[in-house]
Design a protein around this nucleic acid. Structure first.
Lengths: 123, 123
DNA sequence: TTTTATCTACGAAATCATTCGTATTTAATA
DNA sequence: TATTAAATACGAATGATTTCGTAGATAAAA
């Protein structure tokens, strides 16, 4: 089950900050863009119904928690994106990713260093 | 302007096969999944209105042609995906892409060879 | 020329994501 | 206790995407 963009935004906040209430999430979201409180609440309620998140409702203020794994989720989203956009070829994606414009020079260097570290590890 | 998933499917066919009519696109789509002819037609008409594709309507059967560049489009989609999913870090994406499960061993090797070729070219 | 096949145009329904207003409940404060 | 503040629940509107049926136009075939 794939989260939508809005749901992913919320999941990212939960993954980075751990379980939290709606107000916290909403404030984090509002650091990026304007969102009404009840909008965030509604989306999180729907996410709860979908099973994307769980909640502790033993207190007035409910505490929400991600119910799906960050790594698995992102890997699945990536898989899906590669399928749709690059006909399933991860290489085509990497070619585009390492091509001009996509990343800063610093990040490119960092990526190359990472690749190198894999290669060394495996030999 | 970002194409939707369905629109991207159609664009991919146009990019790979050049200008074509609705029937051709629809048949290609039906090799993957069942889609009605008028569904494909409608989507392409909307794509035309959005300016994603152009058409030659001098004959009864209209010939449609992509109006956006494959490379630019995919780069932009990738940029967007990286922003939403990996907080803008292309490295985080590559880490996930080269991680286990995402690609076959063969493809991984291919990617590594590609990376190597870049590194050699730049030094 | 009449019939048949093919294509476009168009409208409308179904689904989904997002948004927010209002009502209600609960807790904290005066 | 009475008031205020904060939280949840819920319904409904909006807009976008996808789907397809039907009607009408055009060309090809009989």
């Amino acid at each position: 089950m794939h989260p939508t963009d809005s749901e992913l935004e919320i999941l990212n906040i939960l993954w980075a900050n751990g379980p939290n209430n709606v107000r916290f999430i909403n404030e984090k979201l509002n650091q990026k863009r304007e969102v009404g409180y009840t909008t965030t609440l509604k989306i999180m309620q729907l996410m709860f119904e979908k099973g994307l998140i769980t909640r502790d409702d033993s207190n007035k203020t409910h505490i929400y928690k991600s119910n799906i794994k960050e790594g698995k989720t992102k890997q699945s989203l990536l898989q899906n994106f590669v399928q749709n956009t690059f006909n399933g070829s991860m290489k085509a994606l990497v070619v585009e990713a390492l091509g001009e414009g996509s990343s800063s020079k610093e990040e490119l260097d960092e990526i190359k260093r990472f690749i190198k570290s894999i290669q060394e590890k495996e030999q």
